[in-house]
Amino acid sequence: MSDLAAAPPSPVPPPPVPSHAELFIAFFRITLSGFGGTLPWTRRMFVEEKRWMTADEFNDAFALCQFLPGPNIVNLTMIFGTRMRGATGALACWAGFLVLPFTLMVTVGAIYARFGDVDALRRVLVGIAAAAAGLLISTVVKMALPLVKTFGPAPFVFAATALAIGAMRWPLLPVLAVLVPISIALSFWVRR
């Protein structure tokens, strides 16, 4: 015990690799507490509670998910599951994350099909839709401001994408087939 004082301040041992059941339950619990977005809860469980990932590892994985196509956090479940337990681990995480929201949405979908025309529900939904549009606007402004502050092609690509899809209502596939290569080429060219 005499060399205890000389030891570095309690190096935390890495947590054991979680089992398939633990992975499933972890993601299931995240969706239980997922009001107002699941990202904060995912981060809290991975990094702070279970210490399955360091903060940096989490940021890296999430950055990749934001940049890849598809629903970000769903992608993150499979990346994380693969790292922990391979393909079956990925499936456990993915299923744990989706089973509850899916069941909930099917239930809500059935209720909506039956009562969607009830006047009180209609009025509530009109209010929620207006607020949800406002939340989305604030998200866009927060995401777009850092782009606008950079001198380069980014603000123009942002505006072109938003207008082509949002105002012109052009189909997604051809618009991206043109804009993605242009944007990547411009980004290369600016960095040369």
């Binding site: 940049f67 549009a133 989305l136 072109a160 949002g166 804009l179 944007s183």
Partner: peptide, 21 residues
């Protein structure tokens, strides 16, 4: 470069969603 090129596209797409909604 690829990552930097895709960021304004993804923000633009969410911007389009805001316009439509």
């Amino acid at each position: 470069a690829v990552q930097a090129g895709l960021v304004p596209i993804s923000v633009g797409l969410v911007g389009a969603s805001a316009i439509v909604l």
